[in-house]
Design a protein around this nucleic acid. Structure first.
Length: 136
DNA sequence: GTGATGACGATAT
DNA sequence: TATATCGCCATCA
C-alpha cells in the first residue's frame, strides 16, 4: 500500500483490452484517448502501448491495429497494421499518417462507459475556429 | 531498490 | 509547419 494502487496488475491491462475492443470497424483511436477513457491515474499513452504489446495471444481477438499514436502514425510498421486499417476503409496520408480527422473514434457510449466503469473523453473532437480553415 | 527502456504526448523553438 | 526536447508512468533487467 505504500505505493501500490488498489488496482490489480493484470486486470489493469485487461481493461485496456476491453476498451480497445470497443473501437468500431473503420474507426481508429489514439493511445492517449484510451488512457483518458480508462481514467486511471497510472494510465498513460505509454502504458497503453505496453499493454497492447503484452497481450500476446490476445492480439488475435483485439483490434490493436486500430490504436495509433497521436500523430496518426504507426510505430509498428512491419506488422501490417496500416494494411489492415486500409482494408477497413481508413485513409492514410502521403506521410503514412491516418486521417484522424475523418476516422477518429469519439469513445464508447456514456452508458457503456458507466456500465464498465470507464470514462468518456472530455472533448471527442474539439475544433478551434482558428485552425481548421485549411482542412481541405 | 535502482536504473534503463518503451507500440507516446505535449510544449518549445 | 516541422523538428527537437522534456515529461509521464509502468514494466523489465
Amino acid at each position: 500500500m505504500t505505493q501500490n494502487p488498489p488496482r490489480d496488475e493484470r486486470d489493469f491491462y485487461e481493461r485496456i483490452y476491453t476498451l480497445v475492443e470497443q473501437v468500431p470497424w473503420g474507426k481508429v483511436a489514439t493511445y492517449g484517448d484510451i488512457a483518458t477513457l480508462i481514467g486511471e491515474e497510472g494510465c498513460d499513452a505509454r502504458v497503453v502501448g505496453h499493454a497492447l504489446g503484452a497481450m500476446g495471444a490476445r492480439s488475435a481477438t483485439i483490434p490493436w491495429q486500430r490504436i495509433i499514436n497521436r500523430t496518426g502514425g504507426i510505430s509498428l510498421t512491419g506488422h501490417g497494421q496500416r494494411e489492415r486499417l486500409e482494408a477497413e476503409g481508413v485513409a492514410f496520408d502521403e506521410k503514412g499518417n491516418a486521417k484522424l480527422d475523418a476516422h477518429h473514434w469519439g469513445g464508447p457510449s456514456e452508458e457503456w462507459a458507466r456500465e464498465h466503469g470507464f470514462k468518456t473523453l472530455p472533448r471527442p473532437a474539439d475544433k478551434p475556429a482558428s485552425a481548421q480553415l485549411t482542412l481541405f
